[in-house]
Design a protein around this nucleic acid. Structure first.
Length: 895
RNA sequence: GGGCGAUUAGCUCAAUCGGCUAGAGCACUUGCCUUACAAGCAAGGGGUUAUAGGUUCGAGUCCUAUAUCGCCCACCA
């Protein structure tokens, strides 16, 4: 049988080969079935414009681990994939592309523009899907959906109409957030507030009757003064009491402004006098309403000043600000300018400064929906991991305001509402209509606006399963199991899915929400395109392999904590996959037989080290499964790493080498081979959800080689051709072995001690030594049967052991618990080095004893601590005393 | 202004219900290309758990305050 694996693992061909095989075999595809339990995850749909970044990578690695693990556990697993049409983002991309050809979207009109967007989607929309495949994501690609496809569009219309009829969607004129660049309204949470070093301009407004006298108002946005209709002061403010009802003149424009009294104004901020611009500020709008003031719009939708701005007509809002301030200075209207830090809202898509804008928009009435979502969390229908995010979710829902859902862009779900030219009624319908539902007039116009992208995202867990149709998929997979996402979209997405799921399907969309951390750069900063501090996961996959990328990221990610990432971190995963690869090379090489024979394998009669490794793996399986159950992915990964590398490779492989080379004992050799194959096979199963490619490759090699050499790989289970559809290892009592669990660590300590002496005495590894082990009369285990193992692992030519043996002359010694190990070093013993070692050990022991005695000498300790703890401390004290005596005795002999 | 998280070895992070001498990976020291692996092997060194108090028999872990960093929320011009 061939074993021509190279000594370094190269992932490239292997990854592509297996991914193709998995997909072609239909392993990722799921159909509703009555016999198996479902486990379902809906992917957070990436934007069609998206390119895979490390954040996506982390998000999808976690989902894939859960999905692969549950699939192996026997669930009928569905990972529902798809992409989001990302209204503004996608429209921006296509607009930019057109503008490079000197075309504006207005030039070609709505219909043709949307055609262009679809064309763009055909061409580039699957980029991120291809990249997710590179990572190994085992989504059911046959079910891939898109938020703008027919079925999902139907779900959007159905939802809109139902909410409208229930009075939960309404249209009205309100102050909203306006992005002058995107020329659309935005929801409150689509505005990013940023601390900004601005100014507080103090401007003098003179009285009409007495131009010598003035009131100073303070503003951060002087350009809006062109729309001023009043000046407000607090009615209790003595400074201004007498001026209430008087008239001021707006500088430059000369407009007459009444001085009004309003409780909103805080006397302690600024000058205590506020200019009132109802058309351009939400607070001023409220003041305007209270005092029946007019509203003067001075700015257009694109942020340029309009005709009401007088000479500034046509200027950009910031250009106007500068010019206006200069003019005010010239006319001596500026009282003073002070630096002022304040937060400024920016568009979350294009970073343009947001304008408060008064306009007619569609809203979702949130209170009733939010209350249901709050209840779902309080009664644990939806549980957050880590649980602290529940508070974040709840506090948003507690304070939620109505959601502005209309967007003045073209790419998206057009609002299914029609206006009648004759009777003015609004008709709302899931189907396109050509008659007014009230007066039957055919003179109808559909609303020009589209819905917020998050409106369709909110329906994702059920719209992808066929809702509003009552499909078998919806019945079987809904509600889904776990949602895996980033804390950044708890409001945007998670809360809204819960609300819509409850309202539309009458069931929460998922029972668990796992919120993972954010990946940061080496210095703890967010990764961003503009900073150029991002790490490209595809480049990392290219350099280190997808498995290494997956494993490295997962082992760094503790539950919900942010991760500082740098390229060097991937070496860890690469080294691990390489280690696994080389362990496989060794195993495969040693399973080969020219004339393989079948020999029965019985765990109860196996050698000590075989029982030990079975037991260790058994425990590891139990612990890893428990960690995964609690979403502690890094914990599971670390345990697997430790078992694979430091238990299996470092110790077990070294222990069995001689058996594999011993042709004289056929049965023992076969047992060693079989144990190797079984343990390695199970380890590959355990690791598969984390590192799917290399494990699949090695498993396939292993099954082939094992079959050829007549080695039974499973005990009581049938082998599978692929790990994807194979079984998840389970803890089994038949592998438990207390004896080896206790003795092996003792043997390892002895071996380490001898190696340590070797090292400290500068003795070559190759030189074989003589050693003696002395143990007390009451020592419970018989070490004699491990003589050969000890001799091989410590490279000894002779090993004697017995009860209370004397220290041989010219020997180095080591106290290990209640045993003593002596290494005979006639002629090579360095007494100074030996004394050094013993003194160091003595100091350690004494320090430890001090700590123990401090506890035991405390009366309250014995009185109040649990008896077992007191007991163990007592035992430790005794043991330490004995050990210290022994070390002291040794030191005395050295002199 | 409010809320949340973090602060542990030189670096990046663990540590279950408060209980074993606080553990890994990287880096470091010493010796090894030993027939799976130098992306490796063997043996080591390295800690006042941010600071100050408190609760407790016992605190990295619980409480209070302080400091520093980060994130989120908030209409005071």
């Amino acid at each position: 049988m061939e074993n021509n694996l190279p000594s370094q693992y190269s992932p490239k061909e292997i990854e592509d080969k297996w991914y193709r095989f998995w997909e072609e075999s239909g392993f990722f595809h799921s159909e509703p079935s009555s016999s198996k339990k479902p486990y379902t995850i809906v992917i957070p749909p990436p934007n069609v414009t998206g390119v895979l970044h490390v954040g996506h990578a982390l998000n999808n690695i976690i989902q894939d681990i859960l999905i692969r693990w549950k699939r192996m556990q026997g669930f009928n697993v569905l990972w529902m994939p798809g992409t989001d049409h990302a209204g503004i983002a996608t429209q921006n991309v296509v607009e930019r592309e057109l503008s490079s050809k000197n075309i504006k979207r207005q030039d070609i009109g709505r219909e043709r523009f949307i055609e262009e967007v679809w064309k763009w989607k055909q061409q580039y929309g699957s980029t991120i899907i291809q990249q997710l495949k590179k990572l190994g994501s085992s989504c059911d690609w046959q079910r891939e959906r898109f938020t703008m496809d027919e079925g999902l569009s139907a779900a959007v219309k159905e939802t809109f109409v139902r909410l409208y009829r229930k009075g939960l969607i309404y249209k009205g004129k309100y102050m909203i957030n306006w992005c002058p660049r995107c020329r659309t309204a935005l929801a409150d949470d689509e505005v990013e507030h940023e601390e900004h070093e601005g100014h507080l301009w103090h401007i003098k407004y003179s009285f009409k009757e007495n131009p010598q006298q003035h009131i100073v108002v303070a503003t951060t946005r002087p350009e809006t003064m062109l729309g001023d209709v009043a000046v407000a002061v607090n009615p209790k403010d003595d400074r201004y009491k007498d001026f209430i009802g008087k008239t001021l003149l707006l500088p430059i424009l000369g407009r007459e402004l009444p001085v009004v009294a309003d409780d909103f104004v805080s006397p302690s901020f600024g000058t205590g006098a506020v200019k009132v611009t109802p058309a351009h500020d939400p607070n001023d709008f409220a003041i305007g309403m209270r005092h029946a003031l007019p509203s003067i719009v001075v700015m257009d939708e694109d942020g340029t000043m309009n005709i009401n701005a007088g000479d500034y007509n046509g200027q950009d809002r910031f250009e106007c600000r500068n010019a206006l301030v200069e003019d005010l200075k010239l006319r001596k209207h500026i009282d003073r300018i002070i630096p002022h830090k304040h937060s400024v809202g920016h568009c979350y898509r294009c970073k343009t400064v947001i304008e408060p804008y008064f306009s007619n928009q569609w809203f979702v009435k949130m209170r009733p929906l939010a209350d249901a979502a709050i209840l779902a969390s309080l009664n644990k229908s939806v549980t957050f991991y880590p649980e602290r995010w529940e508070k974040v979710y709840l506090s948003w829902l507690d304070n939620v305001r109505d959601w502005c859902i209309s967007r003045q862009i073209w790419w998206g779900h057009r609002i299914p509402a029609w206006y009648c030219d004759d009777c003015g009624a609004i008709s709302v319908s899931t189907e396109d209509i050509n008659q007014c539902t009230k007066c039957n007039s055919p003179r109808l116009k559909q609303d020009e606006d589209v819905l917020d992208t998050w409106f369709s995202s909110a329906l994702w867990p059920f719209s992808t399963l066929g809702w509003p149709k009552e499909t078998p998929e919806l019945a079987y997979y809904y509600p889904t199991s776990t949602l895996v996402t980033d804390r950044g979209i708890i409001y945007f997405w998670v809360a809204r899915m819960v609300m819509m799921g409850i309202e539309m399907v009458k069931q929460v969309p998922f029972s668990h929400v796992y919120i993972h951390g954010t990946i940061l750069d080496e210095q703890g900063r967010k990764m961003s395109k503009s900073m150029g501090n991002g790490i490209d996961p595809l480049l990392m996959i290219d350099r280190y392999g997808a498995d290494a990328v997956r494993f490295s990221i997962i082992i760094l990610t503790t539950e919900g904590q942010d991760v500082k990432l740098s390229e060097s971190k991937f070496e860890m995963g690469r080294n691990f996959t390489n280690k696994l690869w080389n362990a496989a090379r060794f195993i495969f090489m040693n399973l080969n037989e020219e004339n393989p024979e079948e020999i029965a394998y019985d765990i109860t009669t196996l050698p000590f080290e075989d029982k030990w490794i079975h037991n260790r793996l058994n425990t590891t399986i139990e612990e890893c499964t428990a960690s995964l159950d609690q979403y502690k992915f890094n914990d599971a990964a670390m345990k697997m790493y430790d078992f694979t590398w430091h238990t299996f490779c470092d110790w077990y492989l070294e222990m069995v080498k001689h058996r594999l080379n011993n042709a004289n004992n056929r049965i023992d050799k076969k047992n060693a081979q079989t144990t190797l194959a079984i343990i390695f096979g199970k380890t590959l199963h355990l690791l598969h959800p984390f590192i799917p490619f290399i494990t699949e490759e090695l498993w396939n090699n292993l099954t082939r080689i094992a079959q050829h050499n007549k080695i039974a790989l499973q005990i009581g289970v049938t082998a599978s051709c692929s790990l994807v559809t194979s079984w998840w290892p389970i803890f089994s009592k038949q592998f438990a072995d207390d004896t080896s669990e206790h003795i092996m660590p003792v043997l390892q300590d002895i071996i380490r001690a001898i190696r340590n002496i070797r090292c400290k005495m500068d003795i070559k590894d190759k030189q074989r030594l003589k050693a003696v082990i002395s143990y007390p009369r009451d020592f419970v285990y018989d070490l004699h049967e491990h003589t050969n193992l000890l001799k091989r692992m410590a490279n000894l030519e002779e090993l004697d052991m017995g009860i209370e043996l004397q220290k041989p002359s010219h020997s180095a010694s080591e106290v290990i618990g209640n045993l003593q190990v002596f290494v005979l070093l006639a002629g090579i013993l360095d007494p100074l080095a030996e004394k050094d070692r013993q003194l160091k050990h003595l100091k350690q022991l004494e320090n430890h004893l001090t700590i123990i005695r401090r506890k035991l000498n405390n009366e309250n300790f014995a009185a109040k601590a649990p008896p077992q703890i007191v007991e163990t401390e007592r035992k430790k004290e005794d043991e330490l005393q004995v050990q210290i005596e022994k070390v002291k005795h040794i030191l005395l002999n050295i002199g």
